[in-house]
Write a protein that binds this DNA or RNA. Structure first.
Ligand SMILES: [Zn+2]
Ligand SMILES: [Zn+2]
Ligand SMILES: [Zn+2]
Ligand SMILES: [Zn+2]
Lengths: 162, 162
DNA sequence: TCATTAGTTGAGACAATATCTCATTAAAGG
DNA sequence: CCTTTAATGAGATATTGTCTCAACTAATGA
């Protein structure tokens, strides 16, 4: 009688972790398919990106890279970001902060953000309804939506009363 | 017999332009309430911001300011942006481009964006359902939402087939 | 293994963007 | 006016992202 439950859990895990942690071999072929090479620097950058906790910006990534003793340059980090995006290893997170785009490992599935204007905490959420609604809007506007960024700014429970 | 119509139109204008073109006097008191002064530079910047067409970034604003012969400095422009935001004279638009925040006069009511990844065109839309849904999400998460940024990236009608 | 080819790299120069410093100016209020 | 103090302008400085180019190296085939 527990089987149904187990199946459900598996299905969920598939959803939650689908596309995570591309294996080296498949990664290599993905890159090769685009005429790209899996170099040392690129490998370091990918590893570091996958090891990042939560959101990060290019500089964060570079710092973490240096910490690990990698020789990868800052330029390479910037150059790699489009590649990592393309390969589905990272994805864009919110762009709330100053002017950097934050990126995020694709560990968990797509989600949007609530960002506290006071403490900076970000709450992640996922609303299928909201996603569907956006599809409808795109259809109505004759627009082929690829991805989106939704960031709701305001005050979290702790900060709401100053 | 035309009176009802006129009233309706007025009401609509109130909605559409509500909060637009803050009068100098009330503006002054809004600022005063925060211990801020309505200086020449600030005034120039506000006027210029309200005169901007569509989206713009700080540099655009500064350029337009120079065109009009204002002596306001770039620093003042940057310094004013939080103030203008606070006073509801401008609001954030999308942050798609490089790393500048785009701002937008509050001429028309809140809307969200579809941005074409190829030609850069932005289509503005407003979906009450989507707005309500976000309110619900905030409630569910015990979050006091103030404003939000939704940008759907993809391809417009003209660019969808390369 | 060696040579060829072409994608990639690192370092630093550059460019663009945003913030800061500080002496000076000028609102606001009496 | 005069005082108080926010605000300013100009430029220095910091941050962020891009570009150049000679050197390097992964991939491929001989
Ligand atoms: Zn979403
Ligand atoms: Zn997130
Ligand atoms: Zn909206
Ligand atoms: Zn807009």
């Amino acid at each position: 009688m527990g089987h149904g439950l187990i199946l459900t859990i598996n299905w969920r895990q598939l959803n939650v972790y689908g596309g995570f942690a591309v294996k080296q071999d498949s990664l290599k072929s993905i890159l090769a398919g685009k005429g790209l090479r899996l170099t040392r620097a690129r490998q370091d950058i990918i590893t570091a990106a996958q090891a990042m906790k939560g959101h990060f910006d290019p500089q964060n990534l570079y710092d973490s890279l240096k910490e690990k003793g990698s020789k990868a340059s800052r330029a390479s980090v910037y150059r790699s970001i489009p590649v990592l995006l393309e390969a589905g290893i990272i994805s864009e997170a919110e762009r709330t902060d100053r002017c950097t785009h934050y990126e995020k490992v694709t560990e968990n599935r797509h989600h949007d953000h609530l960002t506290c204007l006071r403490c900076g905490t970000t709450i992640e959420f996922y609303s299928p309804t909201l996603e569907m609604l956006q599809d409808e809007i795109c259809q109505r506007e004759n627009f082929k939506g690829i991805r989106h960024n939704l960031d709701i700014l305001g005050y979290c429970r702790e900060c709401v009363d100053k």
